[in-house]
Simulated assay, not measured.
Amino acid sequence: MAPFTEIQIPFAVPDVDKPCFTYCKIFGNLKTTQKRPLVVVHGGPGMNHDYLLPVADLADDGVVVIFYDQFGGGRSTHLPEKNGDTSFWVEELFLTEFDNVVRHLGIQDDYNVLGQSWGGMLMGRWASRQPKGLHRLVIANSPASMELWVEAANYLLAQLPQDVQDTLNKHEDAGTTDSQEYKDAMQIFYDRHVCRIKPMPEEVAIGFRMLDEDSTVYSTMNGPSEFHITGPLQHWSMLNDAHKIAVPTLLINGLHDEARDSVVAPWFQRIPKARWFTFPNSSHMPQFEERERYVQVVQEFLYGPYSR
């Protein structure tokens, strides 16, 4: 893996009267690169960048790859006192943070983006505003609407053993989704549709450990699990705005992904310059499950000739 630098980017947050920052990890040198930098935006919301580190393999070919931990998670400023505050943890906060990151790095006039899961949702919204500097976009493992996501999750849940379904339903109905029994049942879903590698890659495990330590953002915006959405994200949708994405866009999912074809298809149908690649041996994390092919597909799209 290429050398990297770590920085803390100051982030002025409304209604927060203490210094805040966004943690950023940069592979390569922005001052010497001849290639357009790539900003990688992680999912969650409330996760961290570690589980996307295979994308840094692109740095071996001279691409500067920029990761950051979104505000409220990872190694960035945490605000557990804002847990449950749905008026604070909103999409616009994270769009403002992204703008702050690219401006601080001085790349706001020319960059590519890869957003995964929630990060792809967020960057889909960003791209729909047609920012001047965005050149190409990768939306990886992301739904075009959360209503479709829930429908897909319900379909996949119905394929689980009946006792697992019963356990999940019991705790969701009782409001005891923080119980170990619920977490164990939830893991069976994750093993099938989130990451199929055993043992789980350490970079992925780090993300889940950090989320366990502080789930403020995830639990407030999303809810207790990938398939039990109780937060305001349950109403999130890009169905009316996806057609505004003007840049060439690559859509990615896995054959066993919780982001089933049904949640990706609306992106493809609406974005004028869209391509779509499904990894046949992957679920939600093809960057690990089919790492070499994943990096190749992304590299060819971002830095090769474009054709639909």
Rank of each mutant, 00 (worst) to 15 (best):
I197Q: 07
H243V: 03
D178Y: 14
S225I: 10
T230M: 08
D214G: 09
N253G: 09
S215R: 13
L250Q: 02
E203M: 03
P199E: 02
K198T: 14
S237G: 06
G254N: 02
A205V: 04
F227E: 05
E226D: 09
V247Q: 13
P201M: 01
P199C: 09
A185G: 15
P232A: 04
K244M: 00
E203R: 09
S237R: 03
H235P: 02
Y190H: 14
F208S: 13
S215V: 03
E226V: 07
P232W: 15
Q180I: 02
V217M: 11
S215A: 15
H256V: 04
A205G: 03
H228L: 04
I245N: 05
V204W: 00
M238Y: 03
E202R: 11
P248I: 04
D191H: 11
R209G: 00
P248S: 02
V247W: 02
N222H: 09
I188E: 14
N240V: 02
D178A: 13
H243P: 05
G223A: 01
I197S: 10
I229D: 04
M221W: 00
P201V: 04
H256C: 10
P248G: 01
K198E: 12
H228W: 12
Q187P: 06
R192V: 06
V247R: 09
D212M: 11
Q180E: 13
V194W: 05
A205T: 08
M186F: 14
E203I: 04
M221Y: 07
C195E: 05
P224Y: 00
M238S: 02
H193A: 08
K183R: 15
R209V: 15
D257R: 11
M186L: 13
P199F: 08
H235N: 13
D241M: 03
G223L: 13
T216R: 10
G223K: 05
Q187W: 06
P248V: 08
D241E: 14
H235Q: 03
P199M: 04
S219R: 13
T230P: 07
Y218T: 12
P199W: 03
P224Q: 07
E226W: 05
V204N: 00
P248M: 06
P199G: 00
E203G: 05
R209P: 05
